[in-house]
């Protein structure tokens, strides 16, 4: 009898603990929807011929719905705020468990970062990532000095101080997910043109660090093993500055391994980006209007060069995508 009571007590405790743990965890619905982007992918993790990896320069600048509408491309942006190169590698490995795309596009902006920098960005990427070997690897390689692994397992360790900011959303989305992106693209329609940019500072070193290149090598090798074409890009964000020295290293790397590299900063006029209108934060990220232009431009390149399928001609896939497009069009009209 006593054993039974102990057993029941432990079960009650466990349920209570799980409940409190989930209740206090960040939901990333109303505030910081960027933290939900990782989770969106699990709703639709198949049939993408193009996977786009990178930081905010991809989820703000490339809209797969435009690529589908114009070219019939099925693309997904697996990008998160301040996503670092080892995180992109981990996400690519995770992606390959679900699907093998024809093309992986990697934005190279993160090559200039060789160490974990900010804990809140780790949280945005990792809190809602499904548990897997890849997640564990990403946590281990991303933790900053003050972080603990266990706080990723038990979010209450990190978020217990949220007790006074809990809302109904915390109950509503405890075990549910709200999709916030359109194939990884986060809509932003605000307009804040470029006025003045900070001075372009000299740097002590422009050379990418060895650990960063190691991860780039791993991404390239993983693509090669899976017969995936790796394409390097630099999104046309005016700031933080993309130095010529950085660009030359990427060009050299691309030449060495016979990869395509598109630095869209070189094609701003051709793409038609108007920085007085097409950015929502003074040149860091494109808004919907800029992203539409860039995705139209890049979609054409992808279609012309990489033998992608026109899924508008596939009944099954086009049904899914027409519904997505319908929802996307409604969202951008709101």
């Amino acid at each position: 009898m006593k054993k039974l009571k102990v057993f029941i007590l432990i079960i009650v405790f466990l349920f209570l603990f799980i409940f409190i743990n989930e209740l206090f965890a960040q939901k990333y619905v109303t505030n910081f929807p960027e933290g939900s982007m990782i989770d969106d992918y699990y709703e639709d993790p198949e049939n993408h011929e193009v996977i786009i990896l990178g930081d905010c320069e991809v989820y703000a600048n490339f809209t797969p719905m435009v690529m589908y509408k114009n070219e019939g491309i099925t693309a997904y942006v697996r990008g998160n705020s301040h996503q670092l190169i080892w995180q992109s590698y981990g996400l690519l490995k995770e992606t390959l468990k679900y699907e093998i795309p024809k093309v992986v596009v990697l934005n190279v902006a993160s090559l200039k970062v060789s160490e974990p920098e900010k804990e809140p960005y780790n949280r945005l990427l990792l809190d809602k990532m499904k548990w897997s070997k890849e997640k564990i690897e990403i946590i281990k390689s991303s933790m900053t000095e003050d972080e603990s692994f266990i706080s990723y397992i038990f979010p209450i360790i990190r978020y217990h101080s949220r007790y006074n900011e809990l809302t109904l959303d915390d109950l509503k989305y405890m075990f549910n997910h709200k999709v916030v992106t359109y194939n990884g693209y986060l809509i932003n329609k605000e307009i804040k043109g470029v006025s003045t940019l900070p001075t372009k500072k000299r740097l002590g070193s422009y050379t990418f660090k060895d650990n960063v290149i190691d991860y780039l090598d791993k991404i390239r090798e993983l693509c090669q093993e899976n017969n995936i074409k790796l394409v390097l890009i630099k999104a046309p964000s005016l700031y933080p500055y993309w130095y010529t020295e950085y660009d030359n290293q990427v060009k050299d790397y691309a030449n060495k391994y016979n990869l395509d590299y598109y630095n869209f900063l070189d094609n701003i006029e051709e793409i038609g980006i108007d920085y007085s209108h097409d950015t929502y934060d003074g040149g860091l990220h494109l808004n919907l209007y800029g992203a539409t232009k860039l995705s139209t431009y890049f979609g054409r390149i992808l279609k012309d060069k990489y033998d992608l399928t026109d899924y508008r001609l596939d009944n099954e896939i086009s049904d899914i995508y027409n519904q997505k497009l319908y929802e996307y069009n409604n969202a951008i009209k709101e």
């Binding site: 910081f32 960027e34 809140p120 945005l124 003045t196 001075t199 934060d281 003074g282």
Partner: peptide
């Protein structure tokens, strides 16, 4: 003399530069 600001990727507030 001049001013610019850069919002962070996801969080509130902006890094400001006063020249």
């Amino acid at each position: 003399d001049s001013y610019s600001e850069a919002a962070s990727c996801a969080f509130d507030g902006a890094d400001k530069t006063f020249t």
